[in-house]
């Protein structure tokens, strides 16, 4: 049986950390910025948030928050397509899924660093 070198651990690793971010950070972030701030539960002025977003640590946080869950999505999406019977197309599906996540990562970097 072949023991070919595989890149799966790399993608699975990104899927795994992306899942942690999606499960723990995203709900907190949605609660704060989707409910608490707009509804006035936390009194913060838009100018203050604007200033915060300029901070390098916040940029790093936003990068983690946005980019890593993309790999979680890509891995799931790839396997869902394979499981529903598109097994023969596994190579192009993998390129499409992970490629989209990479494009998303680059776009995130571009928005945050420009």
């Amino acid at each position: 049986m072949s023991t070919r070198k595989t890149s799966e651990p790399f993608w699975w690793g990104l899927f795994s950390v992306g899942g942690v971010v999606a499960a723990f950070l995203v709900p907190v972030h949605l609660f704060l910025h989707g409910l608490a701030v707009p509804l006035g539960w936390i009194p913060v002025s838009p100018a203050r948030i604007q200033a915060l977003v300029g901070h390098p640590l916040i940029k790093l946080y936003l990068f983690v928050l946005i980019a890593l869950p993309l790999y979680h999505w890509a891995h799931r999406f790839r396997f869902i397509l394979e499981d529903v019977g598109l097994h023969a197309l596994r190579a192009p599906i993998a390129v499409l899924s992970y490629g989209s996540a990479v494009v998303g990562t680059v776009l995130t970097l571009w928005v945050l660093l420009r």
């Binding site: 023991t3 799966e8 651990p9 699975w12």
Partner: peptide, 16 residues
């Protein structure tokens, strides 16, 4: 471990 973690090992699992 190398047998379990080869391509047809654990990585084929899609967490059903």
């Amino acid at each position: 471990q190398p047998i379990l973690t080869e391509a047809v090992g654990v990585w084929d699992c899609t967490f059903v």
